[in-house]
Design a protein around this nucleic acid. Sequence first.
RNA 1: GGGACAUUAACUCAGUUGGGAGAGUGUUAGCUCGACAAGCUAAAAGUCGCAGGUUCAAGUCCUGUAUGUCCCACCA
Length: 703
Amino acid sequence: MSEQLAKTYDPKAFEEKIYQHWMEKDFFKADANSEKPPYSIVLPPPNITGQLHIGHALDHTLQDILIRWKRMQGYETLWQPGTDHASISTEVKVVEKLKKEEGLTKKDVGREGFLERAWSWREEYGRKIVSQMKKLGNSCDWSRERFTMDEGLNEAVTEVFIRLYEKGLIYKGNRIINWCPSCRTSLSDAEVDHHDKKGNFWHVKYPIKDTDEFVVIATTRPETMLGDTAVAVHPEDKRYQHLIGKVAILPLLGRELPIIADEYVDQDMGTGALKITPSHDPNDFEIGLRHNLEQILVLDEEAKVNERGEQYNGLDRYEARKAIVKDLETGSFLLEVKEHDHSVGQCSRCTTVVEPITSEQWFVKMESLAKPAMDVVNNGDIQFVPDRFSKTYLNWLENIRDWCISRQLWWGHQIPAYYCSECDEIMVSKEAPTQCVKCGSADVVQDEDVLDTWFSSALWPFSTLGWPEDTKELEKFYPTDVLVTGYDIIFFWVVRMAFSGLEFMDKIPFKHVLVHGLVRDAEGRKMSKSLGNGIDPLEAIEEFGADALRFTLITGNTPGNDMRFHLERLESSRNFANKLWNATRFVLMNNEDAVEKYEDVKEHLNTMDYWIISRFNQVVRDVTENMDRFELGIALQKIYDFVWNEYCDWYIEFSKSRLYGENLEEKKVDYENFQLTFEELDYDVQKKRISLQIPIDSKDKFV
RNA sequence: GGGACAUUAACUCAGUUGGGAGAGUGUUAGCUCGACAAGCUAAAAGUCGCAGGUUCAAGUCCUGUAUGUCCCACCA
């Protein structure tokens, strides 16, 4: 009799020890010089903004299962871990902390002081998240841990920026962008969420110069009229033919506005006449370019009216709206007000309503990059699981617009562009130039802005392996085998990794993209801090164990679909872990005469032994097939069924008669049901050409 | 406006190539039998959203439809 195990499994007593053992033995270390075939996964780097949430737990568990499975199959596996600096999110957090703890603002402490605090934030939270991932049981190669702002990755980012710039794929331009007046930075289109909001349609009379006529314009944002530089109608609109080429007078400010004709105008929308505000509306911006209209920016970085707004200068955009509407009314310019719902863009970080404004920003030209990224999905080099997400991916790329990559933030990769204060020459280079290449002035300053956080994440599959150096890691582990991620970041991340990999490595970054859904609460709501309905994976681990949590997340979940998280399922998962524990306990309690080698026992195998062996082999085959198809939930269910319903309920029960010599009838074993099982067994065993004698009718003990 | 997904037992969900309707939880009845009451043995429980179609055969394929969820879009 070997040592007696406790009656119930206590994860807390083992998980940490086992993990330590794994680490000490270097089980997760990847060897780039290995002869074994490679299998690699890059971990989507968690943000350093806070702690691990249940979505990470799902994402990581899927990867951990895949990587461990391949490791056991004899592959040289690399699970590359790391964390993401999460530019805007982290900056927002650090600003909050600064205010709360020191009562200071960004400006008070200055760029250097701010970055110092951001780095200490990163130290604290980066470490915390890594320790949480270890608690989850992630079998990453921690010796290779990276950070999107570590030295090597900085170099990769700079290299990419310079290469794209030199290729003409990065440009600086005055474009209309999304501006968050609260974060005071530009945002990419993907960082803006659109929500329907109740609003009004204000019908405003714009008088026609030197006539008694006027044209009525419907607008949802009267305050932007301060920046109007034209009025547009459809070239074929019969109502307005006579006005084209004439001049309208902007109410309140009295500015003269040319009346132009443009195909964009929808005759059925509003009044069919459109005010054009090139600096504050994306469509108007385009129209403005076509007609060479002046751009008048009337809002500042806090979305307050600037001096171009004359008497409204200093008002917040909403105060300005009220004031303008009131003045329009007083001046009899306001014809009517109708209720109207329209979609409003909000900052995905802070939910402030985003303001479209014209601004000088850096962009990545997307057209030529998008094409090959679409090709590799169309021709099947990259496969989505489930496949429907390739549509999401392709659809996004088909309608891609240039990517605004500059952010007016401090935490991130500062743009490697330098300006000559004398002649405004732009220089893009790795090191700061000591003097202007054009005029020789030594007065050279670096661009203040940082890059969009996704600019560095886009390089993750190869930057973490040492690019731009030519490393053996790249040779061995690139392209990676599968990327596991949620459908919510296909646009942000998957697309950008795809075109970056193709552009700089000339190879796809991964062969499969395994997409999972969101983990929702029991009512199906998104988990969020404001609702307080989040389930902390660490609390779940504390109470039920990491295996129970992982089992819960994988079973009953299929690729691409959201799942609801019920605490009861954690219990049943824990029960399964306990079942395994007790099966082991039973074996250990009875292994006095255990033999080590199959050869020593094969003469003595009985029906039950053959049965369980054949079932085991079949389950291994089935499970492997499911795993190959990324059907982890089904695979795990099959293991569960085998262990519980076949191994424990039948094999162990029957083995008791052999061990204790008990009468089966007394044990109340259900012969009838067993007979059914045996018929199935017969089939299995026949396939394996094992001849059997089945003493079904025997009520004697099985020997 | 475009697109995706969901709809199967009381609840949460599986169901891979068309042929058995399943699991966990819950419910009911009976079990302190040397692994496990976090357990065991049973039971009840579903016209697989609705309507058509293809097929010898449809939860599974096709068409339409209802309801819900989500994503994309520069709808003044």
